[in-house]
Nucleic acid binder design. Structure first.
Lengths: 151, 151
DNA sequence: CCTTTTCTTTGCTAAAAGCAAAAATAGTGA
DNA sequence: TCACTATTTTTGCTTTTAGCAAAGAAAAGG
């Protein structure tokens, strides 16, 4: 009865584990090729041009501690990729946003990172790409809600 | 024409990125709950009972440097989870294998880690689980071969 | 034998990350 | 008002993760 679940769970566990290792290696390569630390790349990748973020927001969406984020932002600030201003409404909050230089870089990063994936995906069928999308989408949703419940 | 590819690549890039962060958080929680460092958990997860591995083999399959592996194995050895003996045929090689204690632990780890995924997967249909499997399987293959070509 | 190659370890350094305490600010109840 | 509490971020410190380059040890070939 639950045998099927157990089997599928095992198989998915294994695959996800391998995928994770590969994707980490991939991220590391990409960041290095662009003169960024992995943490910086990961951070830049989630900030959108024009929006501003608190340290906490960034920490939460990156699954890291606020103190860790302060350090990552320090680095980006030093490279003039982000601005950091105190919020006027509540001066405890920082407002982190991309500088012009940051926007340009992030635009390029997103484009090139998508191109890299395009390169990987170009030789398979549209259908298979859709299977990848659906599968990962489902999985991402599950892991995400599991985390909320269990963290 | 290639518009479809570009779109799909972007979407998959984004999703994979999010999935990665979540799975890393998940691994970290799991390792911590079992009194292991993340690197130790990752290493234990790939060694099978009865088999023996060289440092290099482990390094390659974990996408890490041999020197890093030496240190991880040091830790596991200190906890008496693995044995490390010199190969008799070629004494440059180390032969890393699980101790009894290690086998017991790894058995438990694998079971519980699969259970954790079973927990996540239990409320969706067999069909959706299969979609996850297929999607991740395809993606893992692509990233893996991309890495071989580009590393 | 001597040189070269291969596998692992060691010493050192950098990057990644968290914890606990401090600092700054906001909010609140007496 | 003012003392106390809560929130947000930063700082100091430590741990974990990771790689590089050199050293050590063993094999392989000339």
């Amino acid at each position: 009865m639950d045998m099927k679940l157990k089997e599928q769970a095992s198989a998915i566990t294994e695959l996800t584990f391998d995928l994770l290792r590969c994707c980490e290696a991939k991220e590391k390569m990409f960041a290095k090729d662009h003169g960024l630390k992995v943490a910086e790349f990961r951070c830049l990748r989630i900030v959108e041009a024009g929006k501003s973020y608190s340290v906490q927001e960034l920490a939460t969406s990156m699954h890291l501690s606020p103190s860790r984020l302060t350090r990552i932002i320090d680095g980006l600030f030093a490279e003039k990729l982000v601005d950091r201003v105190q919020s006027i409404e509540d001066r405890r909050f920082a407002k982190i946003s991309l500088t012009n230089k940051g926007q340009t870089l992030v635009g390029k990063l997103k484009e090139e990172y998508a191109d890299l994936h395009g390169e990987m995906l170009k030789d398979i069928s549209v259908d298979d790409r859709d299977k990848i999308y659906q599968g990962i989408s489902l999985m991402q949703g599950l892991v995400s809600t599991w985390l909320v419940r269990n963290a």
